[in-house]
């Protein structure tokens, strides 16, 4: 069953999946890189983005409004969480940060279940993107094609923020050397709050743009979170380019293994992670010294 058409289409699937993983992972990784906090509630924030968007969609009927609402709401949640909780954990051990964000993820998931029930919700793609586009070698859902573009634009925007703005400079400087940022006399807390917001927004944005593909349910973020970890480990913790590269690689591994034996797709993903750990312990594009 391995033929060229199939192979190319699988690569394409991998690309879409990989782009999405890249976006979510970059949110996780810039939060980690700047603040030193691994946000275990990142998957739950992905889910929150979907639900916020769905609520906005049911009231407005507009996909664009849904995307805006999903992203902004999760950004707000990120900022509030940082301000109220995470801030008090910067001086505490990493392990406490993991525990509190793990607890938060349960609270988010169950709060959504409380308000919206367990029945999954669907946000349809915007009108022009409904249907299927023939690509010559295959028929492909138009929205998924568009999703590739949407995610690419989002990643570009994130790149722009990180590499072309003052905030981005500080964030990247923070990733390189957090002591240095302290000495720059910048209000670090303000920056941290913003970074947490932006990182959360990346997850929220991914959550809502993915909703027309995978209908949303309270547990939708859990599986994604584990894959995101693998992406970050492969790419290198704290590295934005690493997250993108890791995402794309993970997407391809899952898709191409599926072509031969889908049962081994995830196992292969973890094998790849192990290989990276053995050969390049800090990830493909990660720098030594960050733990």
């Amino acid at each position: 069953m391995v033929n060229w058409a199939n192979f190319i289409s699988q690569c394409f699937n991998g690309l879409v999946l990989g782009a999405l993983l890249a976006l979510i992972s970059s949110g996780l990784t810039i939060i980690y890189g700047t603040l030193g906090v691994l946000n275990l509630a990142h998957g739950a924030m992905f889910m929150l983005g979907g639900y916020a968007g769905w609520v906005a969609y049911t009231y407005s009927g507009s996909f664009l409004v849904a995307v805006a609402a999903g992203s902004l709401f999760v950004m707000l949640v990120g900022i509030v969480v940082e301000r109220l909780i995470i801030r008090h954990f910067y001086t505490r051990p990493h392990e406490d940060q993991l525990l509190v964000t793990f607890g938060l993820s349960i609270v988010f998931v169950e709060a959504v279940r409380f308000f919206f029930g367990s029945l999954s919700k669907m946000v349809p793609p915007p009108g022009p993107l409904v249907g299927i586009t023939p690509l010559g070698f295959m028929m492909y859902p138009t929205y998924r094609l568009a999703l590739l573009g949407i995610v690419a634009v989002a990643l570009l925007a994130l790149y722009f923020v990180l590499y072309r703005t003052r905030i981005g400079m500080i964030v990247r400087a923070g990733i390189e050397d957090s002591v240095m940022v302290d000495s720059l006399g910048i209000d670090v807390y303000k920056i941290f709050m913003l970074v947490f917001g932006i990182g959360a927004m990346a997850a929220g944005f991914a959550g809502i743009v993915n909703a027309p593909v995978v209908s949303i349910a309270p547990d939708v973020g859990e599986a994604i979170l584990v894959q995101t970890f693998v992406v970050v480990v492969i790419g290198g913790v704290g590295s934005f380019p690493g997250a993108i590269l890791g995402g794309l690689i993970a997407g391809q591994i899952i898709s191409i293994t599926s072509m031969f034996n889908p049962g081994y797709a995830y196992i292969m993903l973890f094998v790849a992670m192990t290989l990276v750990l053995v050969l390049r312990p800090y990830g493909l594009l990660g720098a030594a010294g960050r733990e």
């Binding site: 993991l98 584990v226 970890f229 995830y266 973890f270 992670m273 750990l277 733990e291």
Partner: peptide, 25 residues
């Protein structure tokens, strides 16, 4: 041997992934 190649947060993430593989297997 694999997981302890890294510490801290990396270690936590790797162990999550490993647990997931065991479940699949």
């Amino acid at each position: 041997l694999i997981a302890l190649r890294r510490t801290g947060i990396y270690f936590a993430m790797i162990t999550v992934a490993i647990a997931e593989v065991f479940f699949f297997v």
